[in-house]
């Protein structure tokens, strides 16, 4: 009886995991069917995968992939630069001003994406921003930068405040002290902030979909995927293979990332003792 009771929660965990992973495994299995109607007319085949390179719409697929990466790279670089410098600034503002700026900085994070998307769209239309890349990059930088700031801030709190003063005493001007002293010290926060900005931009659908403009023809992977769920010619055979590749990449990165994190924490713990 006691044993059954202790096993029960584990069975529950496994059941939830099964439900959670069924769709993912399902998609991976059917990515080898070469069809989108969940049958295996030709048995296990790599046709779906080769369709990625041979299908008539492969141009659109690769363009959207290229756009996704360019957008994520450009916006994460810009938001990392803005975010890192601003985090230093915000950290040293007067407490009242700092609290206010931090609250506004939270807005893009807490706000629901659809409200942010339509508010930006209305703003871009009102002030006649050129549709396309300009709008997309501004929108992405707007929702990525707050995450960079939030990731740099804790590093600043850990920093010895005297180091900056020492740099000034030794003759550095504030800008030089920023780039030669503060920025290198908070580098780990900047790097994780940049990674975060890149991922969030890569992952975005709603804000891109609403701000890309219908006439520009710019599509990212997610907006192209969305439009192809509605396309008259049907859901292309390469999508389940593409999903599988995306899932594989994500799983690898998350698992490796967590493994590295655990290892680091472990060595830190044993090093401290």
């Amino acid at each position: 009886m006691v044993k059954f009771k202790s096993i029960l929660p584990k069975i529950f965990l496994i059941l939830v995991l099964i439900v959670l992973y069924t769709p993912i495994i399902f998609v991976i299995v059917y990515s080898f069917s070469g069809t989108t109607n969940f049958t295996f007319p030709r048995g296990f085949t790599l046709e779906g995968y080769s369709a990625i390179f041979t299908s008539g719409s492969r141009g659109k697929l690769f363009d959207s992939l290229k756009n996704t990466i360019i957008l994520a790279l450009v916006s994460s670089v810009i938001s990392t630069i803005i975010g890192s410098i601003s985090a230093v600034g915000i950290y040293y503002m007067k407490p009242k001003v700092r609290l206010m700026v931090e609250n506004v900085n939270q807005l893009p994070i807490i706000n629901s994406e659809i409200v942010m998307a339509v508010s930006l769209m209305l703003f871009f239309v009102t002030f006649k921003f050129p549709p396309g890349w300009t709008r997309l990059i501004i929108a992405h930088v707007t929702f990525c930068t707050p995450y960079v700031i939030l990731s740099v801030m804790p590093r600043l709190m850990q920093m010895d405040p005297n180091v900056y003063e020492a740099a000034l005493d030794l003759g550095a001007n504030p800008i030089k002290a920023l780039f030669k002293v503060i920025i290198p010290m908070v580098m780990p926060g900047i790097i994780s902030g940049a990674a975060m900005a890149f991922t969030i931009s890569l992952d975005d659908f709603i804000i891109t979909q609403i701000n890309k403009g219908a006439t520009t023809g710019i599509d990212t992977l997610s907006t192209y995927l969305y439009s192809s769920t509605k396309s008259a010619s049907g859901f292309a055979a390469y999508w389940y293979p593409v999903f599988s590749i995306i899932i594989l990449i994500v799983v690898t990165i998350v698992l490796v990332g967590n493994y590295v994190k655990f290892r680091r924490e472990k060595t830190k713990k044993s090093g401290g003792k």
Partner: peptide
């Protein structure tokens, strides 16, 4: 140092 945040305050 607070000045470093001004461009971002404007941006926000």
């Amino acid at each position: 140092r607070g000045v470093f945040a001004w461009p971002y305050v404007l941006f926000l």
